[in-house]
Write a protein that binds this DNA or RNA. Structure first.
Lengths: 168, 168, 168, 168
DNA sequence: TTTT
DNA sequence: TTTT
């Protein structure tokens, strides 16, 4: 059984960071991945792929990525379902990311990226009090490939926002 | 922009083969991919991933795979939407396969698999006349990696059901 | 920076299991992956891809896979070099697997699969005295996605030989 | 049999473009992919992965990428061998790319990139006449997913350098 | 609506 | 509900 996904695309909006009641960070965002072929009207379309990432990479995602950021995602497809408001079952498909990679030169999208200490669910890297949120997924099902000492340090090249240095 | 998916899992049902008005084959099936980790109740869950494949590999899929078959899929995630019966927009996420691979020894799941000698294009699992179906996707957006002269010939090992030898 | 590989193929020989001086298991094997297209002489060729796997999945690989086994591999490409016997630098490229999956029905290749307690570098799951071997790669660079309680227990379907339940 | 690779990294040098005797373009380059973890000395290493790409994407690669460019590659691992100068067999492992993606903003690495207006097939980095080269691989084993009308047209975002619009 |  |  193999389930592997690799994506490179752009965030359609700023990522949303939440915390589970037990304090586990989870970020959600949508990646727009432009198709390389045109449709019958000659237009280039895109796929809009919902992604979820847990723990430290979630916080890094919230801190380093924003609307329009070019990002790489490695993960797996996860399906689920929930009861819709009309009582009908709604089926969901998303990508659960093991790692998220910032693929933009450091200076390229200057300005309004959220600063350290800013809100985003209350959780920056160093200021992460935990907000109360429903947890419907085990957080420890993730595996994190990477250890980043200080993602703020190095000034150039793509930034790896995955992390294994978990505070819980 | 990269969008790549690799799956290995089992078909939850026999694949469904259809033809577009212009005669392009399209097969749909769901792959059950067991997760490698357990949830908080200690149960192993699975993801149920909807897959679509076009043209010759669609026909091969219908001819060689059935409920329970172990299959490999390479493709990309495609999102879309349609108007629901209640007028609300319904968003969809599926995998569009470039190739589908039969990963079962030839003899392993005997019995009711469609037999050879059936005509291609006549060998769908159920209704193989050219049915009328909305085509909202260019069929030639697919790329097929493989050319299989005679998928019936070799008697052992996994069978590659991708194909470039398209009749249209 | 993304480096992801997914392979499905057959072992060309029994895997080789070794232990580093510090007792870390490492298995090596070569996967034959048949190409899906033919060369100019009309022959189907294969790629022979060297794979390395560390720790528990290494032991599982040695215990469950043998020459001819159909296996799935997820990992990354790793390059390196060493001093050849003639003093020249030799460059190497291999796949370092995060996980290895046994894709064969339990009964399909019966018989001579190595039993528990058998040699293979001395290392089965429960009988793993450590042999002396050069370690030229950090073992903790691996990430293991899976936890398998008892890989001997379940009697059907593909067997996940990845594992996080590490004894060191 | 599945053999899929996805890489994102930087070219270690300008790509080398050659033509086979029959006029098929082939570009070679090496991607440096930084590892996300550190070795035992605490240093971050990289893998240096040799890549080959055929036909139109080869020309696009030569035209759009240069030393230091951030690129995405989708392809497969290919192994081979040749007779070394000392008569010994030398084994090779490389990635044959189906598509190569330029992941850098248009303006980001200015300077000596080949300018537009240069002829395709005349715009190789170095010797762009049709050189005589051994062809030991069928060029039509490649599949190209994409059609790019005019890769020079759109002025922003990552540039898809794959192409199906082949002149032979 | 799910496979072994 | 979508990015450049």
């Amino acid at each position: 059984m193999i389930n592997r996904v690799v994506l490179v695309g752009r965030l359609t909006k700023d990522p949303e960071l939440r915390y589970t009641p037990s304090g586990v960070a989870v970020a959600r965002f949508t990646l727009a991945v432009n198709r390389s072929f045109s449709n019958q009207q000659g237009e280039k379309e895109a796929d809009f792929i919902n992604c979820t990432v847990w723990r430290k990479p979630a916080e890094n995602t919230a801190n380093f990525l924003k609307k329009g950021s070019l990002a790489g995602v490695e993960g797996r497809i996860q399906t689920g379902s929930y009861e819709g408001t009309d009582g009908k079952r709604v089926y969901t498909t998303e990508v659960v990311a093991d790692s998220v990679q910032f693929l933009e030169p450091r200076n390229s999208s200057g300005g309004d990226r959220p600063q350290q200490g800013q809100p985003y669910g209350g959780g920056s890297n160093q200021n992460n009090q935990y907000t109360s949120t429903q947890q419907n997924q085990s957080p420890n099902q993730q595996n994190y490939t990477r250890v980043d000492e200080d993602p703020f340090s190095s000034g150039s090249g793509p930034i790896e926002v995955s992390d294994d240095d978990l505070p819980f």
